[in-house]
Simulated assay, not measured.
Amino acid sequence: MAIKITDECINCGACETECPNNAIYEGASEWRVSDGTRLKGTITSSSGLSTDAKTPHPPKKDNTYFIVTDKCTECVGFHLEPKCASVCPVDCCLPDEKEDTEELFKKKVFLHT
């Protein structure tokens, strides 16, 4: 499940611009699998989500930033550590059932090739 943003989030937005997968969204924002990825057409994610990449999905949270776990790779393939966690001023970007590095890298390849 990668990284999660806890309710302690102060909505500063520092994490959103650091995410190489566009997996972080402001509260109450719709999200798309295609945002910040190369995905087009009908896709099936590693979690089993089957959707058109450009279909808008409802926000996962209304009041704070949130991470779309199907798009989060914990920055594997981009950085040595999750950038959201390293820039968060209140330490609210936390591991949530950490995936192994191989699975995260496969997800990165799926999103960007």
Rank of each mutant, 00 (worst) to 15 (best):
G27L: 09
G27S: 10
A28T: 09
A28H: 12
A28N: 15
S29N: 15
E30A: 06
V33P: 10
V33A: 13
V33N: 09
S34G: 05
S34M: 04
S34P: 00
S34H: 01
D35V: 00
D35K: 15
T37Q: 05
R38Q: 14
R38M: 11
K40I: 12
T42R: 14
I43A: 01
T44E: 15
T44P: 13
S45W: 00
S46N: 08
S47T: 13
S47D: 11
G48S: 08
G48R: 15
L49G: 02
S50R: 15
T51K: 03
D52C: 02
A53R: 00
K54I: 12
K54A: 14
K54V: 14
T55F: 10
T55P: 00
T55M: 13
P56K: 05
P56G: 09
H57T: 02
H57G: 01
P59N: 07
K60W: 07
K60I: 12
D62W: 08
N63S: 13
N63D: 12
N63R: 13
N63A: 13
F66Q: 02
F66M: 05
I67R: 06
I67T: 07
I67H: 07
T69F: 00
T69K: 02
T69I: 05
D70C: 07
D70R: 02
D70F: 04
K71R: 07
C72R: 05
C72V: 07
T73L: 03
T73C: 10
E74H: 01
E74R: 00
E74G: 00
C75V: 09
C75H: 04
C75L: 09
V76G: 03
G77S: 06
F78C: 04
H79G: 07
E81D: 15
K83H: 06
K83C: 01
C84G: 13
C84M: 11
C84H: 10
A85Y: 10
A85N: 13
A85W: 12
C88F: 03
C88A: 05
P89C: 01
D91M: 03
D91G: 10
D91Q: 07
C93W: 05
C93E: 10
L94Q: 15
P95D: 07
P95G: 07
D96M: 02
E97P: 05
K98Y: 06
E99Y: 10
E99T: 12
D100H: 09
